[in-house]
Simulated scan of single mutants.
Amino acid sequence: MSISTLSFNTSTRVSLQRLQSQVNEATQELNSGRHLDIGKTLGRLTGSAVSARAQENSFKEQQISNGLVETRLQNIDASLATISEGAESLGNNLIGVSVATNLDTLVNQAKSGLQTLTGALNATGSGQYLFGGDNSDIAPVTTTATAVTARDTAIRTNFADFVLAATNGTNVVADISADAMTQYLGAGYVEAGPPSVTHKFSDNFQATNWTQASSGTIASRISKTETITSSLSANNSAFSDIAQAYSMLASLDIGTLNTDARKAVTDKATSLLKGGGDQITTLRADVGMKLKRIDGANAELQRQQDIMAATVSSLEEVDITEVSLRVNALSTQLQAAYSVTGKIQGLSILDYI
């Protein structure tokens, strides 16, 4: 075997590089807490680790998605609360008060309530309209001046046609009887023919007349096996009932009605506000149940995520104590190697001989 200064230096350099590489790899494992080369370390178990990590990430992503659904439902509940409070307030004011004395106040409150209802139904969350049904890209109730004027004009025109029919041609609002007004605000006032025509206030509030919402709803998956509806539709009868109550007080010029006919209006408005409010209470209870289902789904998702995390940990994570000892041992060897290398580099072939 030939001996030379070059062979000495080459041998020691290779040893140093190998030790330095081992120190670097062990240090990376110590810092990350994971095996540096998962495939090399785990071999055939690598697939199990990859699958467990993918499932863990899937559970995390589902919980993030559930958080968005939860926020949407909370915003829906807040809007429902606003609508309910407005309806209850006006309903209470209609009971046991003199409508004649408080007429202006009640009419203004009805107009304000209609605006509040519209604003609540046009509420958004994450860029989507919460009450648009599955048509969440368009505001359920158009609020442009043109649209508002058109709706009010339609209501007044519908009422004017009824007045003409219910007063035997006198066309005097004060001549409308309480019975005729009750029919108009309820099942409809049938004008004697021919032709026979039914005048009905609620025709103004058919879904296509006052909202652009879809009656469908958005389904959101909250787990692998569960879905919930995470939107509402402005077409729900609760909202149209309350809108009718506000509108009949705000648009029918009830100050020109006789006392009995005016009472028929306020009684119907009170009934609609109460009925709409009760329906909203039911809707809010349903939202509350959905929020509880999300809580339950998240708890189960977290449990499954913890299991997958433990599986990944058992497969991929290193023993920190063992790796730390290995780093220290390799570092000691490296320092010793550097020391020996320094001495060797001071030798020549003559020293060896």
Rank of each mutant, 00 (worst) to 15 (best):
G275T: 15
Q17P: 00
G188N: 08
T118S: 11
G132W: 03
L272D: 05
R53L: 05
A207T: 12
K60A: 13
D306E: 13
N66D: 12
E25Q: 10
T144L: 03
R34G: 04
A243Y: 01
T211G: 01
N57G: 07
N171H: 10
D179W: 00
L103N: 14
Y246R: 04
T229Y: 05
P194T: 15
N102D: 15
T105H: 09
S339G: 09
S4M: 06
A180V: 05
I218M: 07
T217R: 13
N31W: 02
G296K: 04
R293D: 14
V172E: 13
L36M: 06
A49I: 11
N168T: 13
D152S: 13
V197Q: 08
D152V: 11
D253S: 11
I155R: 00
A160H: 07
P195V: 15
A120M: 08
T266F: 07
A207E: 10
G255R: 12
A309T: 15
F159D: 01
L103D: 07
I83H: 01
T167V: 06
Y338A: 03
I3M: 06
T10Q: 11
D278P: 00
K224A: 15
Y352K: 01
A165E: 13
N204W: 00
D179L: 03
V23P: 00
N135P: 01
T208W: 03
I95V: 14
S11H: 10
F8I: 11
V23C: 02
D134S: 12
T41W: 06
M308K: 15
A145S: 15
A329K: 11
A310K: 11
G43H: 08
A250Y: 05
T46R: 04
T256H: 04
S202V: 03
V340G: 04
A329E: 15
I349D: 12
D267V: 02
S339H: 09
L42I: 11
D241E: 14
G296E: 15
N298G: 07
I176N: 00
G67R: 08
S126V: 06
A123N: 08
S126C: 01
M308V: 04
D104I: 10
G91D: 09
A150M: 03
N235V: 02
A110N: 10
N9I: 10
G96C: 09
S48V: 11
